[in-house]
Design a protein around this nucleic acid. Sequence first.
DNA 1: TTCCAGGAGAGAG
DNA 2: CTCTCTCATGGA
Length: 296
Amino acid sequence: MEIIIKNVTDFNLKYTLESGQSFRWNWVDDAYFGVVQRQILKIQQKNDTLIIHSSYEQDKTSFLTHLHHYLDLHRDLANILNAVNVDAYIARAIDMFWGMRLLNQELWETIASFILSQNNNIARIRNIIRTISQRFGQKLEYEGYVDYTFPDPKTLADAGRDKIFDCGTGYRASYLWNAANNVANGELSLDALKLMEYGCAKQELMKLKGVGEKVADCICLFSLGHQQALPIDVWIKRIFERVYLRKRAKPQEIQDFAKNYFGEFVGYAQQYLFHYAQQQPDWDNGDHLTLSFKHK
DNA sequence: TTCCAGGAGAGAG
DNA sequence: CTCTCTCATGGA
């Protein structure tokens, strides 16, 4: 089917799909291809119009509803960015990547992806996830583009640790296999997780081996829609130590400062800072905080 | 060759 | 509680 969404405000497809929160989108010729809801999606943006093609052919209304949710289009981004735009440093990040949104991705795939992300780089994470999907997922084809669903927990549990290791997952293989078993046997309920508050969901996720504070926060932010989650990876740690706190800081200190400084949408602030720092660190611009124009 | 990547677990102190 | 070491892998 084809879906045209017009008058999309404050949305940038490229920044949203290439900001390190999803590992599954591929740019081919003039469009992004990916897998959502076990269907291939082809998405293009022309100014304020989204052109979406999919192999999915049933129930257009519910598909459209899910698409809005997935792309985070139901939120008032301008309001959010205005709230976190409290100094000249993040102002540059916001200005440069205006329209970047936090996705609401499928939960199990997000759990698995960020278990695999630890002590790893984005390019290699993408390769590993592609390999796992190719070997254990279901093959899909649309307009000549071939991709694979991410395998469900039971499939990975049945495959075994060694087969997961063979996908290049390294020491994380046992973590992923363990998580797959926990979900498959009902010890961890994905449906229950979706209903929990942020703190409760994070705590529940951290019961999984291989899921610590940072990975749990990624899952909360990139799948469960908890905008107050602040994943602290090496980049975010560097930003807060060099730009904001100007000293070595433990994760909890950064959490406390950031929550107070940026407020309830700190997760969105984090995404802009992360993407900005990756492309143009600009660490030692010491005058940015004295130029602070909104923060009291 | 060594270092690094959207870290976390285990052990020592 | 905090600090340190280790865990596979591939690209720079």
